[in-house]
Every structure is written in C-alpha cells, then in structure tokens.
C-alpha cells in the first residue's frame, strides 16, 4: 500500500512540476511541440499548432490540467478523476510524439526508446493506480468518503 501511495504522490509531483515549469517559463507555448508532431495523427496536431486563436487557450488548458491533476494526485483528492485525466493527457502526448523507430524529434531525448517511452510507463503506472485506488485509505478522499458514507447512512430509512 505505501508503495502505491508513494507512486501516486510521485506522479502527482511530476505533473505538478511540469505545469509549474511551463507556467513560469517566459513565452512557453506548446506550439513548437505540436508542430514537431509525428505519427498518424500528426496532421491534427500540426493544424492545432497553426490555429493562432486556439494556441493560447491550449497552453493555458495544458498548464492548468497539469497543475490540477498533479495537486489532486498528491493530496489524494478526487484521485479517481485525476488519474483518468492524467491518463488522458499522457495518451495525447504519446500520440503527438510516438516513439516510432527512425523518427527524429526536434528536442533530443536523454534515452533511447522503441515504442515504449516514459509517457507509456507513466501511463501504465496510472493505470495501476486506477485499478488499485489508494486515496480512500491515504488521502483527502478518505475524509470525504467517510463523510459521504455517514451521510448516506443517515439518509437511509431507519
């Protein structure tokens, strides 16, 4: 159990800091990343990158999602939704930059990947957390759910 909780907090930590770093970095935008997309959905990502009106919204959405998901995972607050959101983001990142052999991206990677990259590992880790939720035991959800269960009990006819 402690290992799963630590995993949840660690992934939350990573998401939160990614969001924070992008937020603080002057002029950060996902535009370059999107333009660098490869794989079978590259067309969609390229199109997104060229929507001048949309890109600011996408940047804000991405940063907010990273911060909120990260915070929730660390706190164990609505951790089910946060887990699902995190899985969603990672799937989008992977589809934009799939680790296909022979494909070279603008930003160099520090490792070597063959289909399985860090996004996939983090995605799988979140899947484990989805199947074995921990926030009801350690996390704010424990407090909320115990309250809810009390409320539910009290509403039941005697």
């Amino acid at each position: 159990m402690w290992a799963l909780v630590t995993l949840r907090v660690a992934i939350g930590w990573h998401f939160f800091y990614e969001g924070l770093a992008k937020w603080y970095q002057p002029g950060w935008s996902a535009q370059g990343y999107l333009e660098d997309s490869q794989g079978f959905l590259a067309g969609i990502f390229h199109w997104l990158a060229n929507q001048a009106g949309l890109i600011g919204f996408l940047d804000a959405f991405n940063i907010t999602a990273l911060l909120v998901i990260g915070l929730f995972l660390m706190l164990g607050f609505n951790a089910r939704y946060a887990t699902l959101g995190g899985i969603g983001l990672l799937v989008i990142y992977y589809l934009s930059h799939p680790a296909i052999p022979g494909v070279i991206y603008a930003a160099p990677t520090e490792g070597n990947y063959f289909f399985i990259d860090k996004n996939v590992i983090e995605f799988l880790a979140l899947t484990v957390l989805w199947l074995f939720p921990t926030s009801n035991l350690i996390g704010v959800d424990r407090l909320l759910n115990s309250r809810r269960s009390v409320e539910n009990k009290s509403l039941k006819p005697a």
Partner: peptide
C-alpha cells in the same frame, strides 16, 4: 453532529498524510 465526530484521529492522519508534500513542492 455525528458527521463531525465521525473522523477518528487515524482518519485525519491518513487523510492528510500527503499534504506536507505540497509544502515541499
């Protein structure tokens, strides 16, 4: 009343166990 009193010391400790992580972050 029973809502408020339903949290045991154990619940609060475990419920907020990861909050200090936020402080470090």
């Amino acid at each position: 009343e029973s809502n408020h009193t339903s949290f045991s010391r154990r619940d609060i400790l475990k419920g907020l166990a990861t909050v200090p992580v936020i402080g470090i972050m």
